[in-house]
Design a protein around this nucleic acid. Structure first.
Length: 157
DNA sequence: GCCAACGTTGGC
DNA sequence: GCCAACGTTGGC
């Protein structure tokens, strides 16, 4: 049982979109970065918990929580010439990109802003808060998970 | 929209 | 295998 943070641009796919999906479930596809790919393929497991993070938008921060409902499998969009994520160098025999399925769990009453996350002294190791970081799938420790959940719920008041 | 930081590509 | 050029990410 591990913890993760996945980034998404809410204009493209938000936590509300996830909640609105059939069975509140969606493949987390379109990841085209090798380090993130390796996590999706090798480490993200069914039952793991995921912070859904909204980037490149008005309210940047953690929007809520999802659960991994299927572990790593080849991302279909890489084989689809119509898809923006099409990769001509990949093949079904030797897939290059992987995805997992995520299922909506919870939307925070208020988004937990990046600014606030950065202000928490114990949250300094997570790649998210380090300058220039572009990793879109990253591990979160149990300790970090608990601190961030607590901060998100405190924000209700 | 700006721009710094980063990952990837391709010439050599 | 180096590294400059390029395209993309992402906060502000």
């Amino acid at each position: 049982m591990a913890y993760w943070l996945f980034k998404t641009e809410p204009d493209t796919f938000s936590i509300d979109d996830l909640k609105a999906r059939p069975a509140r479930t969606e493949p987390w596809d379109g990841v085209r970065n090798y380090q993130a790919r390796n996590f999706l393929r090798d480490n993200v497991a069914k039952g793991d918990s995921v912070f859904i993070y909204h980037s490149s938008c008005k309210a940047v921060g953690i929007a809520g929580i999802a659960t991994v409902s299927r572990s790593g499998y080849p991302d279909d969009t890489q084989f689809d010439p119509e898809s923006a994520y099409f990769d001509p160098k990949s093949s079904p025999e030797k897939p290059r990109w992987f995805c997992v399925n995520v299922t909506f769990e919870e939307k925070f009453v208020q988004i937990l802003p990046l600014k606030l996350i950065k202000s928490i002294p114990q949250i300094s190791e997570i790649p998210l808060v380090n300058k220039g970081n572009r990793l879109s799938v990253m591990p979160v420790t149990k300790r970090e998970w608990e601190i961030l959940c607590h901060a998100a719920r405190a924000g209700k008041a």
